[in-house]
Design a protein around this nucleic acid. Structure first.
Lengths: 220, 220, 220, 220
DNA sequence: TATGAATGAGTGTTCATTCAT
DNA sequence: TATGAATGAACACTCATTCAT
């Protein structure tokens, strides 16, 4: 009874430490990229000694993995509804808008997420695989949506389309983050949405004879 | 007459060494990215001592710069016509095909090019500028083509469209290179082309009433 | 109260390490001179890894600067009184004796000091300046003493005499350090003092009427 | 008969090469000191390939040794008379003047000589010994002169005086070379001579009662 | 004989990781 | 649990020296 609070507090303190370290890591990864980020720099940013860092993470890779995982989780929790909800009934532009808006929003607030995804090439061996988990997860969601819209699409086609869609989104997010906040960024966001909508629209056209209703409205 | 062969041979050997070193660098950059690539690893890959590497390049950056420059030059020389030629009269799908086909082809044969473009963020100082030159150059070409097709498009819109287009192409190239050679790769190539065509098609449609002739025919 | 000892011990350890490293550096500088001394050799001599050395000094230069600074400081603290004290009233031989004795003593105990002064030409950049500071400081003191004795001497003459005096002292110190401890060294010390006394004596002869028995007539 | 000229020419050519290399070495040693001078830099300065350098000298040390030896020889040949000639009958100031003047002159024209003597500390192992030969040779000459003047001086005293004298001369030469050409340098030269004369004068005074005939007459 | 490309051990320095406290 | 000093392998780069031509 008298022993219980301690472990709890410890756990709580540990959790805080981890959060603190991951925030520091996010900040450093954003500034320098994964491979140029030093664990000592992360510890310093977290106002913690290197030894402490290694009490919570076995190595540098693990930090990136955990950070990536948490960010993904966070994204899912905060905005993930977009995927699952009933907006599958919406016309494509609105659907894309509903899905992309929170994603874009999240990435603007957590630029480390993108940095990590791009850096995964630099990450050696096992880490890359775990990182790919994040990637794969997003891919899976996209593929699911596509599958629901066009159930007739063969699996490998669906995979390819999902890949391409995610590629476009990532490329667009880069541009969005690179744009200065303000109208320029808004315009870039709009452009990204257009790109996705236009890419996906033809998939949904069940009848080549019918005028292309679902397609994008006139551009820009 | 008796003096000439020596220097020439020397130069020839030097040229060969440089080529050999750049090939090794390309290979290592592909495997590990720029920043994780060590000069010793490059030398080892080239079956050469570190000292030899430094007889031809003053530092690590210079290797990346020279490799990037040569690849760009090579791309321009081999396939650059695509942009300049008369295929501006072609319908969009054929135009994209004509332009993208050699670019894809080149990147398949020289995967280091993409690796270098992705890594350019990690490259410090002057190199980054030169690398950005590559990026900027491609961007400029795309913007030119767009400008010719849609002269009415305001400059900043044109820039954004060029950015987005290049982003899609780079993302697509990543997928193409990641795909195993064979039908899977071909399909990915086709998907990339579709993505570009669909993204650009609406730009060219002056008349929303007219049936969307220039647009892609039903996909897949 | 329970928090204090740790940092203090840490600091104490750090201070010890620095001392240890500087001792090792002194030893290596003595054996090989500044430029031939390698940081790894210094670390090895200090029975420490290279990384540890760099935890306390940002680079090789800094080691020399710190060592030089400490030695100078030490010399000032231990023996510096010689210059300032009332022994300006002593006759020249006693004055030279009073000033030189501790200097010689110090250099015998800290041969690195001389090694560093000789090597200062090899030391690049900022360090050289700091080292010159040591040199300049000693020069200034000598010039001060001369100025007090012969206020009529023009500034540039005074500078030249100080230069020459310091030169003689440094040359003599080299000989002293080269001599085996014992009577040989004592004799060399005596010789150095004689050289300085004889060089300076003529300067101090206030009365040109008195037959210039031993000396030069007033110089230049 | 037809064979003879070739070897001679070869020898002649070889001699020229060596001279050329030693001149280059002198120049580089002067600029950077012995240990910072790279053999490649010497070869470059001599407009010769590194391989050629190593055809004439087995290693870097040998270059310094040979250069030192030649400079000494040259000094002996050009100005050495000073030591041997009849000016032993001159009063001390004139003697010192006669001996020092050409030495100073030579060192002004061949600053590498001094650079080499100072650098001998940096020179490892065997080389230092050979370099000391130069030093020892000069020492011997000085000791000889002293011996002739004061035959009663015990050998070890004589050695010490010679050491000190050479020390003063070297220190003075440093100052002379450091002074800008012109009156400043002349004044420094005069100061050096004074230092030597004053140091040696008392040695020659057999009788403190007798007026100090041998001592310096009015200075400079 | 002369070349200059090639070598490889060595330099100063960094950083992911460990360990005594 | 937290510290930060300590480690040592690795990095980018240099240079005295060798060797194929």
């Amino acid at each position: 009874m008298s022993e219980e609070p301690a472990p709890r507090r410890r756990q709580a303190r540990g959790e805080r430490r981890i959060t603190q370290l991951l925030q520091a890591a996010a900040s450093v990864f954003c500034r320098t990229g994964y491979s140029a980020a030093s664990t000592n720099a992360i510890a310093r940013e977290a106002q913690v000694s290197p030894g402490t860092l290694y009490q919570y993470f076995p190595n540098k890779e693990a930090i990136a993995v955990e950070l990536g995982g948490r960010l993904l989780q966070q994204m899912r929790e905060t905005h993930g509804l977009a995927f699952d909800a009933a907006n599958l009934d919406l016309p494509l532009p609105e659907l894309v808008d509903a899905v992309l808006e929170p994603v874009i929003d999240f990435n603007c607030r957590n630029p480390a997420f993108l940095a990590l995804m791009h850096g995964s090439g630099d990450i050696p061996g096992r880490i890359a695989e775990e990182h790919d988990a994040v990637h794969a997860s997003m891919l899976g969601r996209i593929a699911d949506v596509i599958g629901k819209f066009v159930p007739s699409l063969p699996a490998d086609d669906r995979g390819r389309v999902a890949d391409m869609t995610l590629g476009i989104v990532k490329a667009g997010l880069d541009l969005v983050l690179a744009a200065p906040e303000g109208p320029a960024r808004e315009a870039t966001v709009a452009e990204l949405k257009k790109a996705v909508v236009r890419y996906l629209a033809p998939l949904l056209e069940p009848d080549p004879d019918a005028p292309a209703r679902l397609t994008t409205t006139p551009s820009s």
